[in-house]
């Protein structure tokens, strides 16, 4: 097999215990001994209970945080800090309110010192792909939540990353917008052949959008199961949702996460601001 685009090799991340100075407090182990690979052009979802360290994995892949133990590789290079290969996208669109949509999409290229002409052209190309070509000069507050999230995707794609990291990008929009965005994203990932690691709480979303789903355990988070989604047509999440195998996969994930046994902690119900 070719070299994986993204690889976690025995990654552990712990944070110093709270209450320093008042005796020894055990450090908080967010993720323990996680190994995973994402191949070129593959979309892999990461699901797990709240607080299992999914987002911690993502910040390490983005180079914003370093593992306590182990290493993260992107394109075979050890991740030492933010780099050109990776871009991330969160639940919040993080559009800068004082910039127009076009200027927001240009942000990454601008920071990287790309000349004005070419960064403007690239930004327009991505906005057109995301069906926002009529909104170049609008400000973020003038757009709906779904449009803003598409603008955030355009900004992510504009820097042409090899790997896209997504942390629950659809969890702040309403159910219908969510389905439309999922279908947009599915088509875009297929068309651009981007590699993506995708965190979500929504089991159906994970199955509909991914080639593989990785299931994480409670803290300290580690990968307990890998599920290969054997349904064709990843580019079209709508079609996938119609497939009879869809329900089986979701059922399997429900079993794995013991959702049916713990009514109190259904993972798609909630604030996971802490993980």
């Amino acid at each position: 097999m070719a070299q994986p685009r993204l690889e976690f090799r025995k990654v552990t991340r712990s944070f110093p215990g709270k209450g320093r100075g008042r005796g020894l407090v055990e450090p908080l182990v967010a993720v323990a001994d996680v190994s995973l690979t994402v191949a070129d052009g593959e979309v892999v979802s990461l699901i797990g209970p709240s607080g299992c360290g999914k987002s911690t994995l993502l910040t390490m892949a983005a180079g914003l945080d370093r593992p306590t133990k182990g290493e993260v590789f992107v394109d075979g290079e050890s991740v030492e800090g933010p780099n050109r290969h990776v871009a991330f996208m969160l639940q919040k669109d993080l559009l800068l309110p004082w910039r127009t949509i076009l200027e927001n999409v240009e942000l990454g290229l601008e920071i990287r010192g790309e000349p004005r002409q070419s960064r403007r052209a690239k930004a327009k190309e991505q906005l057109a792909r995301c069906h926002l070509d009529k909104f170049y000069n609008h400000y973020p507050h003038q757009l709906s939540g779904g449009m803003r999230q598409r603008a955030a995707l355009a900004r992510t794609l504009a820097v042409d990353p090899d790997v896209i990291l997504l942390d629950e990008p659809f969890s702040a929009v309403d159910a219908q917008t969510k389905m439309i965005l999922q279908s947009d994203f599915g088509a875009t990932f297929a068309a651009t052949r981007k590699t993506a690691l995708f965190i979500t709480h929504d089991l159906a979303e994970a199955v509909a959008l991914s080639d593989r789903v990785l299931v994480m355990s409670h803290r300290p988070g580690t990968i307990i199961r890998e599920l290969t989604i054997d349904i064709p047509d990843r580019a079209n999440p709508f079609a996938r949702r119609q497939d009879p195998r869809m329900g089986r996969y979701v059922g399997e994930l429900v079993e794995l996460l013991h959702i049916n046994e713990r009514g109190d902690q259904a993972p798609n119900h909630g604030g996971n601001a802490h993980d």
Binding site: P82, K92, L107, R112
Partner: peptide, 22 residues
């Protein structure tokens, strides 16, 4: 917003760029 800072950092912004752009 810390996430905004992280976003700008993820584009490999230096300290001065974080200040000036964000």
């Amino acid at each position: 917003d810390r996430d905004m800072v992280n976003l700008v950092r993820s584009f490999s912004a230096g300290r001065f760029q974080i200040f000036w752009k964000l």
